[in-house]
């Protein structure tokens, strides 16, 4: 039996002990199936950016991460029974993601300063933009829509 099966019932204002073992009536989640879904999403999130379409890259990089987090919170963390906490956790995670990406992007996407220049990174970005421009033309898009290879 898993550890979780022995966890005491959810405390109601601290009175958790008197209630004995909680639950017991609900069906067990098929964790292997959940794992398979997560694995499939991982594959999609790796393949998506290879299309080199900005919208698809953003959706596969961040959108799928949110979906995966939702699945982990709901099933592996067993918080599906407290729906509002799933929302709280997702909101917190998205806020942290925005904070981190927002804090890092202005810095790591900048390749020169007053007394320095990241020549190699600039070269790769230029090549990526050139490739993206070709790709964009093929799809009737502007070169700006090309993802920045970094």
């Amino acid at each position: 039996m898993s550890d979780t099966a022995h966890a005491p019932a959810t405390a109601d204002h601290g009175a958790g002990h008197g209630a004995g073992h909680g639950g017991g009536g609900h069906a067990h989640t098929n964790y292997v199936k959940i794992w398979g879904i997560l694995l499939a999403l991982l594959v999609v999130s790796v393949l998506g950016p290879m299309l080199e379409i900005r919208v698809v890259t953003l959706i596969t990089a961040f959108g799928i991460a949110v979906v995966k987090a939702y699945i982990v919170v709901k099933y592996f963390m067993h918080i599906g029974i407290e729906k509002k906490y799933v929302g709280y956790l997702l909101a917190t995670m998205i806020a942290l993601m925005v904070l981190m990406v927002g804090g890092i992007s202005p810095d790591v996407l900048k390749h020169d300063g007053a007394r320095w220049e990241n020549v190699a990174a600039k070269k790769v970005v230029t090549e990526g933009q050139a490739k993206g421009a070709d790709h964009g033309d093929a799809h009737g898009k502007t070169p700006e829509a090309a993802p920045a290879a970094h």
Binding site: A7, P8, A9, T10, A11, H13, G14, A15, G16, H17, G18
Partner: peptide, 15 residues
């Protein structure tokens, strides 16, 4: 999880 679920009876969060 332990603190959320296993506090002694009567122990509220501010206790």
């Amino acid at each position: 999880t332990t603190v959320m679920n296993s506090r002694a009876p009567g122990m509220k969060m501010f206790d």
